[in-house]
Nucleic acid binder design. Structure first.
Length: 223
DNA sequence: ATGACGATTTACT
DNA sequence: GTAAATCGTCATA
């Protein structure tokens, strides 16, 4: 089982806009092992290593919110520059967060699906608060899904469109210089998009191989 | 104005 | 394994 090492306690250099502007699959892979950081209003710092991502490839991608060039107030962040957040609300109760990739008017993004909690476990637990009488059994479930991590990080529509490169509320830090080697990346079809025809089968989900912090251990077809 | 639909999670059989 | 929760968004009228 491959556990990622904890990054140093002090803050790391940020990921750049150039990092995010690259090919979306490349970014989805390169984000694995990098740190998502949140500063709450009260100053609390939360962070987690990214262990699972999905690539959404724009107008051609039937599973993407920008399929067939669909553009609306909801998804306009995907049409903007790389390095901004696309946060959407779904199922009447959940938020999910993406990192926008490529150039402006090329509406692609990487969905962040799971994190390995690093800083602020206690605050995250309070934010998740599934049932105060029945606390979460362990930290592997804290951020093991796209909506769970948004809840734990207090990420909602108010943060949609935020610039992850310059923001002091939500940003990305470089926890590893080299991309995770391919042999340590599990690859499979994306989750929850079964009605998307042939795009449902494409290998656009990426995870740190063997990590206990991912949303679902099954479904991976290759490295 | 109305109805169908989620890039999900949780509880329950 | 299945089902319920719950509502913003968008297409249609």
């Amino acid at each position: 089982m491959v556990l990622l090492p904890d990054p140093p306690a002090e803050s790391l250099p940020r990921l750049t806009r150039s990092f995010c502007r690259r090919d979306t699959v490349t970014v989805a892979r390169a984000l694995l092992g990098q740190l998502l950081v949140r500063r709450l209003k009260d100053g609390t710092r939360l962070s987690g290593l990214i262990v699972e991502t999905e690539a959404y490839l724009g107008p051609d991608d039937r599973a993407a919110h920008t399929y067939n060039h669909h553009r609306s107030p909801r998804n306009q962040s995907m049409w903007g520059p790389a390095g901004h957040a696309y946060v959407y609300f779904t199922y009447g109760m959940h938020h999910c967060m993406n990192v926008v990739t490529r150039d402006e008017h090329c509406p692609q993004a990487v969905l962040i699906r799971a994190l390995q909690p690093i800083e602020g476990h206690q605050a995250m637990r309070l934010l998740r608060q599934p049932n105060p009488a029945k606390p979460l059994p362990n930290d592997t479930n804290l951020c093991s899904g796209p909506a769970k991590l948004c809840k734990a990080f207090a990420i909602a529509r108010a943060l949609d469109g935020i610039d992850l490169i310059t923001s002091d509320e939500l940003w990305l830090e470089r926890a590893r210089t080299r991309a995770l080697p391919n042999k340590n990346i599990a690859v499979g079809p994306r989750i929850g998009i079964q009605s998307s025809g042939d795009w449902a089968d494409k290998p656009l989900r990426f995870a740190v191989r063997g990590s206990p912090y991912i949303s679902r251990p099954s479904g991976f077809t290759k490295t």
